[in-house]
Design a protein around this nucleic acid. Structure first.
Lengths: 165, 165
DNA sequence: AGGTGGCAAACAACCGTTCGTTTGAAGAAG
DNA sequence: CTTCTTCAAACGAACGGTTGTTTGCCACCT
């Protein structure tokens, strides 16, 4: 907390004129990260072909991670240390986000664009591969975000059993 | 440290008759986790078809994660808090392990079993999807480890552009 | 006799948070 | 235009507790 205070030129205790507790700050942080993911997902038009929607979602997801590397790291881990009640709120939003992936895959299967046995597991697989990027991706590295998004999209489309290249 | 001590029926300070520091314990933990991953990878015969080798490696990887859920969690995260010198040792072993994936994919491409543009990125993608399982997989859940390994192997083979089903 | 392993106590540093007080600016009253 | 009041924001010290580690001492086994 004293580090946090120093970052805004305050004394440790002075923070508590603005916040209720350290946990409140953590929740706010994690919750806003959830906002980011959800809002980009909701911005994708539903009337596009599943392949296109998925490609866009992949790019958007990677963009959010890259743009908020630190927040994403906290988002993926630290929510487990919230009290159960707050944890549930985060879990609900995470599940909602996961639902976007499932829904797109589901739609693609129905349209004959994808061929997937277990939609739930496939969505989890894809999200797993995407989420891990926060471990190693650095915007200042060799790989452009656009290049990464392109390459990962291709891999993911094949994972989901797309026919065309 | 006092929790650790209680787990072996000792007083907090008594630990220091056996260990040098908390960091030493962390390193030992993380390093032994690396042992687990590396040893199962090295146990896979090199003269098998790439598809078979990869399937075995996937199953073995998931088995290690499932068997040592807690250790795996620490392995994936906590090594970042070691001093740089020890971090490098872990990184080296992690890279060696990643090399197994790369090598198998590379071999598969040469044999015409796989079709992959960027071997390095493909290996990273596969490992990412596998590693994330520690976040959600619980051995006591509905999904058998064997079922998970089977399903993930199929997805991964498609990711790598395998022809046959 | 010597070394090992254990204990209890203590160490300094740090943790999240509270407390009484000071500051400075805005608004009301004269 | 001044004076007085109000109020939020910040300070700095302190609280009780925890952290990783060190110390001196005693008991046991060789």
């Amino acid at each position: 907390m004293r580090d946090l205070a120093r970052a805004v030129n305050l004394q440790g205790g002075s923070l508590y004129a603005h916040i209720a507790s350290k946990e409140e700050v953590l929740f706010e942080l994690v919750n806003r990260a959830a906002d980011q993911f959800l809002s980009v997902a909701q911005a994708i038009p539903e009337d596009l072909p599943a392949k296109e929607r998925l490609t866009r979602l992949v790019r958007a997801h990677l963009q959010v991670i890259a743009r908020e590397l630190d927040n994403a790291t906290v988002f993926f881990h630290e929510w487990k240390f919230l009290r159960p009640e707050l944890q549930e709120k985060i879990k609900a939003r995470r599940d909602e986000y996961e639902g976007h992936f499932r829904q797109i895959i589901e739609a693609g299967v129905k349209q004959g664009e994808f061929e997937v046995e277990d939609v739930r597991l496939a969505a989890l697989f894809v999200l797993s591969a995407l989420n891990w990027t926060y471990h190693w991706y650095r915007p200042e590295g060799k790989l452009t975000l656009e290049e990464l998004a392109q390459a990962y999209s291709n891999l993911i489309l094949r994972t989901l059993g797309t026919k065309a290249a």
